[in-house]
Design a protein around this nucleic acid. Structure first.
Lengths: 144, 144
DNA sequence: CTTGCTGCAAACAGTTTGCAGAACT
DNA sequence: AGTTCTGCAAACTGTTTGCAGCAAG
């Protein structure tokens, strides 16, 4: 799992012609060792504690790379700090259902998935799955 | 609808001993005339255009009051600007369902509701309702 | 040796705050 | 008159950027 992710980053770096640097390795290691939605600041301090020389900007820049290669995802809360969470494979989509013609449009929304995890955690639930269906009139039925 | 909201704010202001000022009236009027998620900056410019004297800080301060009295809600996107949207009455809750003991916990999440509206809008859907159910093990069933 | 990467500090953008004067009650 | 509110500018916070030196290829 962690090795997979390292490979993911290495492949991405190779494909983009990025160099392999000590700092990126350290930041990736520490990011992979964290749990959901760590703030840049927190990650920066973790990195600093084991590796004082690393700068603020490098952490910012490296996290953007992780997002770009699909390892991480930006998450916003209401405290003005950007957080990053791990992208986990196997996420699925939900549905928009037209109550007139019964057509179904699929969609995915990572933020909703994430919020669901939060809600479940808050209530002590161990989540197994979910179903989200939005009902309404699709664009063509609206016009009629 | 607009009058209701003005009343809402006036009642809140009265209850809190806030003064009624020209600026707050203007900002409320303009906010009520806007659509979903306006940024502070945009609202500020709208206010300025009809009323040049009003300052930046006042718009920020007044929007916080709207949130406090339940008229507005903060919304975050990924562009670093805080937006505010209207709170609409009649929002409901969703469910956490335990697949073992079938107990149901109700919850509400405004952000999910809002995201659903966005998704529907993006697909040209006129939303009528939705159902969100999260399935899993409740905290007591997990322990067994 | 060439080019990309880093660390630093300065710059930036959005938001908040302190304060003197204006406005509400 | 007393106190809250406003507008301004300065301060703050989180993030980005320019640049000289460092390091990977």
């Amino acid at each position: 799992m962690i090795l997979e992710k390292k490979k993911m980053f290495n492949d991405f770096a190779a494909a983009k012609g990025l160099r392999s640097t000590r700092q990126r390795d350290i930041i990736l290691d520490i990011f992979l060792s964290t749990h959901q939605h760590i703030s840049v600041e927190d990650l920066y301090f973790k990195v600093k504690s084991s590796n004082p020389g690393v700068g603020h900007a490098t952490v910012y820049r490296t996290l953007k790379l992780f997002v770009e290669c699909g390892l991480a995802r930006e998450v916003l809360f209401y405290d003005g700090q950007t957080r990053y969470e791990h992208v986990v494979a196997g996420e699925h989509h939900d549905h928009l259902v037209c109550t007139n013609c019964n057509s179904i449009v699929e969609f995915e929304n990572e933020t909703i998935e994430m919020l669901q995890n939060e809600i479940a955690a808050r209530h002590g639930f161990q989540i197994k799955g979910h179903k989200l269906e939005i009902y309404g009139l699709c664009s063509s039925c609206r016009r009629q």
